[in-house]
Design a binder for these strands. Sequence first.
DNA 1: ACTGACTGAATGACCATTCATTCAACCTAA
DNA 2: TTAGGTTGAATGAATGGTCATTCAGTCAGT
Lengths: 205, 205
Amino acid sequence: MRTARSLQPARAAAPVGDKREAIMRAATKVFARSGYFNSKVADVAREAGVADGTVYLYFKSKEEILRSIFERNTSEAVRAGREELAKIEDPREKLRRIARHHLERLGADRDLAVVFQVELRGTTKFMEEFSAAGLAEYLGLIREVFEEGQQAGVFREELKPKLVAKILFGALDEMATNWILSRRRYKLAPMADEVLDIFLGGVSA
Amino acid sequence: MRTARSLQPARAAAPVGDKREAIMRAATKVFARSGYFNSKVADVAREAGVADGTVYLYFKSKEEILRSIFERNTSEAVRAGREELAKIEDPREKLRRIARHHLERLGADRDLAVVFQVELRGTTKFMEEFSAAGLAEYLGLIREVFEEGQQAGVFREELKPKLVAKILFGALDEMATNWILSRRRYKLAPMADEVLDIFLGGVSA
DNA sequence: ACTGACTGAATGACCATTCATTCAACCTAA
DNA sequence: TTAGGTTGAATGAATGGTCATTCAGTCAGT
């Protein structure tokens, strides 16, 4: 029976409105370290510096936290990607930019990368969501660029764009997953160019 | 107090012996459908046609069931693969055989494929095991074949074998994952050749 | 004094694991 | 051949622990 009521809140200084943000960041960290199913909401709350109940003022459930992390990051990334692509002409250069973005983004935040490469794939339920939402759109983006290149005569005409998109995505995805699991610390982003060199060799006309 | 007398294998009448097998098959099905963490041991037991407690006569824990499914299948696959490879000369043909095996195996059992592509990656814990055990060996196998090809002058010398191995694996892995998630039913195995064509185009000297 | 953001102890489900009990198969002795 | 005895695989109800979620209060700011 402790009645330590007199504990200072200390949140006085903290600018409100960022509590949701703080919880998402904390959750990313906790999920990345223990795995989504092994993480307790209490752990997330502690990491975020709030009480257990506070989490529920900002999220309907534990699952919604994960979903939010996913949504926030994909929508943002795809939009930014498309925007930048508009400025480029050469389809090969476009693909290179996509690949670089992909690995830069994940390479910049290991915890986020773990959540994306590992936790989000842990259940078919999430997978299906992931598939329907972000992945399909992302694969579509790659495919469009490739078709563009085929019309420009840069890429081999007989290749199936959809298949090619999956190959490039798969290769990049594997780089990211391996980077996470590797004990050795190296830069992820530069691998984009290495992958692209081989890939372009295989698909160029 | 057991008699020192030699006990007969007895059990003869009952086609027992395969209860462990039945539980593993049931678990593969249940895990594939609901996800490992959402599956109850009771579900596995029911699917296998045994009582809850019986599961614990054959497995120490729920986790051990998953581990067993993984181990059984990887060790078997890698061994069979190496054996067959010994009979082939051309490194390009070897890679093709590896790819075909990879997709044939997963394509032959959708539930098993789901467990491998989705459930086994759901936690960093399993990932690390997966990585340490099977994946590393598998990537090593691909790398060896590639190095062999480089020495034979078939593949570009300047490429890093390790990176190349990851690219091929990543591409195949993505084919498998996409196949699982796709609502449309198509044959997985034939995609191995399509992937290989593009891949070889990128790495050949 | 009022408001509403925040707290954290309490609640209620859920489920992996255990274990006392059952029972079919088998053995042995008469 | 049969009756008494032994075994251990199989059972499934009960246990115990773990959390996600709730909500009755608290408190800082106005």
